[in-house]
Write a protein that binds this DNA or RNA. Structure first.
Length: 487
RNA sequence: GGUGCUAUAGUCAAGUGGCUUAAGACACCAGUCUUUCUAACUGGCAUUCGGGGGUUCGAAUCCCUCUGGCAUCACCA
């Protein structure tokens, strides 16, 4: 029986990279009729963030990556399964029990070194060009000294006692055998001064106790896996299979991080990306099917997914491809589905103003045309655009020129339909060809111009297909339906 | 710096010694259409698989080496 798990720590938003890890674990479990378990790793009391668990479960449930066991959402957040609790902070006695075994067998030891001393040692080592590492001062304290200091109430941590100059090997299922010498490893802290276990100790104990057969996680864990592997050996436990996934990178080939804009699942969903599309794209980032299929439902992914076809190199997150996949999903929606998805994106004011859409658009365009210096502020406040690259693009000199041209043309039109707008845009595009205006420059403003959203569902598409009147009529219908159901 | 991982086009990638003078998709470029579109359609886009050696009748695929990228080196996960 296959048992895989997703074990995030509740420190805020769910990163798309985390979602991919969760997805792979889910797909692998489902493919093999196994269980997908959700465990909470909340051993760092300083980084806890409120509502993280809600955010996490919402992201998982919206994308349909639903756990079979552990933390689940039923009316409210609860725990199900026989191997609980599934929240590490509720498992402290278990860790204490197992650390005692390690101490008794001489494979772990009390360390009374102060953080200050460790810091000094570290600096010294770095200065001398050495690999920073615990110097082992407390490795061989006498029983009596340990007892004395414990009785005295000295603060301590518990460290793993690694043998010297010993090769530790383990198998990574997608990279092969990996061997590391213990001299390159540190005597890892297993229990912190606050009594909580570190990640390294808690994962091993929990994964074993919860019967996890396959560990699929990010490659940042690869360097510490030898320690985990060694712990399994010390306890005499059967090792799970390890799979280390490469990271998702940004355009600069760096790990995609929160600092470069919105990388949380929530923000993508809020921008109008359909959960199915996000999941689809993430599945394809680092994995490829045997054939050339690109659009997959979750069910199809379960069927086709194969961990052997995972790529080992970091993949760059490409928003273009996501956009394309998203558009594929939007196109396949029925009108009813589409309008349901669309509803949140129609702001009240816009619905009210739609009859005067021409004037509204004019205002926007005129504002935009005033010049690059105010674009920044305007875009940020009105359209929530913060992507620096897009801002740059919009500030290109030619953009205001294009807007001026647009306004001029639109003024000549009594009633603006999306169709007419499009024609006008094309004309302008042709006119400016001589000036080598790239299609891309028109693209961005066009989108804002027509939808008022950078990434929202494609309003212009809807307008084109159904016509403005029809859009309004249907919206009213939806409105009524909702009101009726509320009664 | 030590250690580990990794290297096919702008991006995701297929490819595991001959079927490959390297699939497919996104992006990009050129064009067609203009009862819809940011759609659709047509065409273009790696003589070459990070560089250099070697093994072989034959290599992107095996070996060596150099170079680059990434990760990690916490009482964070």
């Amino acid at each position: 029986m296959i048992r895989s798990r997703f074990a995030p720590s509740p420190t805020g938003d769910v990163h798309v990279g985390s979602l991919r890890t969760a997805l792979y674990n889910y797909l692998y479990a489902k493919k093999n009729n196994g269980s997908f378990i959700l465990r909470l790793e909340d051993t760092d009391r300083t980084r806890l963030k409120e509502n993280s668990v809600e955010t996490l479960l919402n992201a998982l449930y919206q994308t349909k990556i639903i756990p079979d066991e552990g933390l689940v959402l039923e009316e409210e957040i609860t725990q199900t399964g026989e191997k609980g609790p599934y929240i590490q902070s509720q498992r402290l006695p278990i860790y204490q029990n197992y650390i005692k075994k390690l101490i008794d067998s001489g494979n772990a030891y009390y360390c009374f070194c102060s953080k200050e001393r460790l810091e000094t040692v570290r600096e010294e080592q770095i200065k001398n060009g050495q690999t920073p590492k615990y110097d082992g001062r407390c490795r061989d304290l006498s029983e009596t000294e340990i007892k004395e200091r414990l009785d005295r109430g000295d603060e301590y941590v518990i460290r793993l006692k690694l043998p010297e100059n010993k090769d530790i090997s383990f198998k990574d299922e997608i990279r092969g055998d990996i061997t590391v010498n213990t001299n390159d490893l540190d005597d890892q802290v297993l229990i912190k001064a606050d009594g909580f276990p570190t990640y390294h100790f808690a994962v091993v104990v929990d994964d074993h106790l919860m019967g996890i057969t396959d560990i699929i996680r990010g490659e940042e864990w690869l360097p510490s896996t030898p320690k985990h592997s060694y712990l399994y050996e010390l306890f005499g436990w059967e090792k799970p299979r390890f799979y280390h996934l490469s990271n998702i990178l940004n355009k600069n080939r760096k790990k995609l991080s929160k600092r470069e804009g919105d990388v949380s699942v929530e923000s993508f969903l809020n921008k109008g990306y359909l959960p199915e599309a996000l999941v689809n794209y993430l599945a394809l980032l680092g994995w490829s099917p045997e054939d050339n299929q690109e659009i997959f439902s979750l069910e199809e992914l379960v069927k086709e997914f194969d961990l052997n076809r995972i790529n080992t190199t970091g993949a760059i997150f490409d928003i273009n491809k996501l956009n394309w996949i998203n558009s594929q999903y939007i196109k396949n929606l029925t009108d009813e589905e589409l309008f349901e998805k669309l509803r949140p994106f129609f702001k009240e004011t816009e619905i009210e103003l739609t009859p005067q859409i021409v004037n509204l658009l004019k205002d926007r365009l005129e504002y935009l045309a005033q010049g690059p210096e105010i674009l920044d502020e305007f875009l940020k406040s009105n359209f929530e655009i913060s992507d620096p690259e897009m801002l740059e693009l919009l500030k290109e000199d030619s953009v205001p020129i294009l807007y001026n041209a647009l306004i001029e043309k639109i003024s000549e039109v009594d009633e603006l339909t999306s169709e007419k707008a499009q024609k006008i845009l094309k004309e302008i595009q042709k006119e400016h060809k001589a000036e080598k205006v790239k299609g891309k420059m028109l693209y961005m403003p066009t989108r804002i111009f027509l939808t008022g959203q950078m990434h929202g569902p494609d309003l212009s598409l809807i307008m084109e297909v159904l016509g403005k009147e029809e859009v309004l009529a249907r919206l009213d219908k939806v409105k009524n339906l909702v009101e009726e159901s509320n009664e």
